[in-house]
Amino acid sequence: MTITIRLAQKTDVLPIARLHFHTWRETYRGLAPQTAYDEVTEEVRLARWQSMLSNAESERIVMVAEAERQMAGFGAAGPASDDIFQGRAEVKFLYVAAAFNRKGVGRNLLLHLARHMMEAGYNGVGLGVVVGNDPAIAFYERMGGERAGSYTDPGPVWRSQNYLYVWDDLPALMAQERKSNH
């Protein structure tokens, strides 16, 4: 299976919003409170992504992964939203459609986002993962992420407890990209 990673375009708004909505609901079933499920509709996701992808001044980069002629995942990274990141870039979103789990999509997205953040001058990247999201925790640990603390993400509708995972040696992380391409 060939995975293509590219910068998101305004025409990707609807596919990203749909993937985000459905994947979020699957991932956080049993972790997020019912009020979050009730408030975070597909329309809410669509409005948020329309705003993000129309903001040309944003320092955040949004990338999509395509495989088998469909959107397989997306990710976004940029300046950190919380002081706990201590000057690292933040991978704010990294979602993979269930049909593409464990096929290299998340790995490729994470590596591309990290490379872009390194090129933007960051020495490290970090991300928050909701406590209890064991598949994501296992993935980030396989990718060499180190747990560096925890924090409460204020979120728009849910104050989730998160672990902070960091990569402070971006060249070593990029070496994984070279290994996976050979």
Rank of each mutant, 00 (worst) to 15 (best):
161 Q>W: 00
110 L>T: 01
119 E>Q: 11
65 A>D: 10
147 R>M: 05
43 E>Y: 00
5 I>T: 02
82 D>C: 00
68 E>N: 15
16 I>Y: 02
93 F>Y: 15
147 R>L: 02
138 A>I: 14
119 E>I: 00
46 L>K: 03
82 D>F: 00
76 A>Q: 13
77 A>Q: 06
165 Y>L: 11
38 D>A: 10
16 I>E: 01
88 R>C: 07
179 K>S: 10
123 N>F: 00
41 T>H: 07
40 V>L: 13
110 L>P: 15
100 F>R: 07
122 Y>A: 02
89 A>N: 05
148 A>V: 01
56 A>F: 08
26 E>R: 10
75 G>T: 13
90 E>V: 00
38 D>W: 03
111 L>K: 05
12 D>V: 00
48 R>E: 12
163 Y>D: 12
71 M>L: 14
95 Y>L: 13
142 R>W: 06
41 T>S: 12
81 S>M: 04
145 G>M: 10
13 V>S: 00
138 A>Y: 15
2 T>V: 04
177 E>K: 13
148 A>P: 04
101 N>V: 14
21 F>K: 05
152 T>N: 09
154 P>R: 02
167 W>H: 12
43 E>R: 06
139 F>L: 13
4 T>N: 09
72 A>C: 12
40 V>H: 04
180 S>G: 14
169 D>T: 00
70 Q>T: 03
23 T>Q: 11
129 V>E: 11
60 R>M: 05
60 R>S: 09
180 S>W: 14
43 E>F: 00
20 H>C: 10
118 M>S: 08
129 V>Y: 10
58 S>E: 06
121 G>Y: 00
112 H>Y: 08
162 N>P: 09
51 S>V: 01
164 L>H: 11
121 G>N: 05
